[in-house]
Structures are given as structure tokens and as C-alpha cells.
Design a binder for these strands. Structure first.
Lengths: 148, 148
DNA sequence: ATCCCTGCAAATCGTTTGCAAGAGC
DNA sequence: GCTCTTGCAAACGATTTGCAGGGAT
């Protein structure tokens, strides 16, 4: 079953309708393989001639998150960041404070340690987020050459 | 040097003034040993008879963060969370999604692994945040007894 | 047909800011 | 006294929502 079929199925199960606007948002989300925010999506849809109101973009993103096809993250800075889940197994982020680049990483050893911490506190972990903030390799190189 | 003296010194160095309002906010922040948000502070100050406007609470929190005496965190849910640094060496959080309780933990092994990840990507880490979301021990117990 | 959806604009919420009056040095 | 501060209210930016008209089943 394709991701789009899964979404349609999700809508059907929830007694919701498969509308043109929802399809457009869906396609825009799945055409990207980087992180994005609601406004990125809104602007891209408008620019590509499939305008959907901001309200609908937000409403559809909420549905996509409920369906489990999209992940919503809070990487600081007010707005929420999203990414689709397909081909994106769980990972955490390195976030460059200069250029805002986001690098994904996955470290099973850390995940194991997290489980141990939860066990210690009798805590049942449902999800986690881990962001390392700093300066990425290319920005460091830039800083070194630039003598501004 | 006490924390308050450090704050006064910070203000002085920056050519800023040590006002009554700033002292009040400072004291309220340092009288707490849990996490809080700007509005908690605003309300507590008003209730305790040392009212300071919300604007000033926000402005002073910004100063406290710049001075390094207070840490600002984004634990999701819109508002920012703060905590003072005194006696609070670096730590991460377990956050209960039912009762909002926050448990602090510190795991040097994880920190080491993070450093390794950064080294791998040539990334210079300046700070990090790690939050494990789930259900805390007491809420689990409650769920088991309650048959609602 | 029925009920769900959409766009719009107004409403929210946390936070920031311009401005005129007031307090620190 | 000069300058930094404050409180107020308006401004903000992201997100949500009420409503009336328009589509999907």
C-alpha cells in the first residue's frame, strides 16, 4: 500500500473525506525529503498553482500527524518543524546555529541508555527528542577563512 | 560572590542599572527550585505584593539568561521554561505527558556518545537538549488502579 | 441530500516593542 | 540631569477557530 493509499484509508476510517486540498498538501509533504514548516508548505503550494489556505495546511498537517505518516517536532524558534516518516526511521538532530542546517543522526547506544534511565525511574517512554546545537563543519570552515 | 552579586556585576559591566524590579524578579527566580515559566513568575510577584509588569519579567529573564545565571528551555507546548543554574549542573528531562511532572536526569555516558557523534560530523556542539516524553511512575500506578 | 470541508477573517497565546513618564547613577 | 527603565497597550508571529458557502459521498 502506498503512503497516499494509507492516508486515504486513514481518512476513510475516521469518516473524513478525501478532498483535493488534502491531496495537494499530502503530495507536497511527500515530495520533500527535508524538514519543513507549515508556511513553507503553504507558499510552495501557492507558487506551484495549487493554492490551499493556511488554515487548511495546518488542519491537514494535524491529520497527517495523527495518521502517523508525518512527525511534528519542536526544534525551538517558535514554529513547528515537520518531516514525513517514510524512509525516515527514528533519528535525532544536530542543528547549526549559524546556517540552520539540520543533520540527522541515529545512535542505538544512546537509545539503549535512555531505556535504562526510564527503567530506573519507572517511567514509560513514549517518545523522545534530542537536539545538539552548535556550529556545523562548513560554518566552522567559513569562520576560519573569514576574518570579519 | 553570591548569585545576586554576580547579577549586579553583570548589569554593571553592561552599563545597565540595578533597579527594584530587576531585584524582585531575580529573587523570585532564585527562590524557586523547580522549573517555571514567565507567567508563573509574573503571577507570583503580583500575589506576593511586588508587582512587576509582564514586559519587565520577560526583559529581566532575557538578562538573566544572558548573564548565564538562568537557563531557558523549550520543552514544547508553546511557552518557554526556565530554571536557575545555581546547584543545577547540566541535566536533561523526563517529561510526564499526563501530569506534566518533570524529572531531571544526568547521564555522562550519553554525553560522551554525543561528543563522539559531533566529532564524527565535524560539528562543534554548544549546547544540547534531550527530553524523554512518556508516563511517570505515579501516573502509571494511577492508571492501573483507576478503571475509568 | 447530508455532512464534511474550505477560505476568510477574527481570535488566541506567548512574547516583543514603541512610547511617554519615572527611577538610578 | 542624562540615560536607562518601566508599564501600558498596541504590535507580532505562529497557530486556531467560527462561520457561511462549496464539495465529497
Amino acid at each position: 500500500m502506498t503512503e497516499e493509499e494509507k492516508f486515504v484509508q486513514f481518512l476513510r476510517n475516521a469518516g473524513l473525506k478525501t478532498t483535493q486540498a488534502r491531496r495537494e498538501v499530502f503530495r507536497e509533504v511527500f515530495s520533500r525529503h527535508q524538514h519543513f514548516d507549515a508556511d513553507d508548505l503553504y507558499l510552495k503550494l501557492k507558487e506551484r498553482g495549487a493554492p490551499v489556505s493556511r488554515a487548511t495546511v495546518y488542519r491537514t498537517l494535524t491529520l497527517l500527524v495523527s495518521s502517523g505518516l508525518v512527525r511534528k517536532m519542536d526544534l525551538g524558534e517558535g514554529r513547528s518543524t515537520f518531516e514525513h516518516v517514510l524512509g525516515h526511521p527514528h533519528h535525532d538532530h544536530l542543528i547549526c546555529l549559524k546556517c540552520s542546517r539540520i543533520i540527522e543522526f541515529n545512535n542505538p547506544a544512546i537509545e539503549e541508555l535512555q531505556k535504562g534511565i526510564c527503567a530506573y525511574y519507572g517511567f514509560k517512554m513514549l517518545s523522545h527528542s534530542q537536539e545538539l546545537y552548535g556550529i556545523c563543519e562548513s560554518c566552522i570552515a567559513e569562520e576560519e577563512s573569514d576574518v570579519d
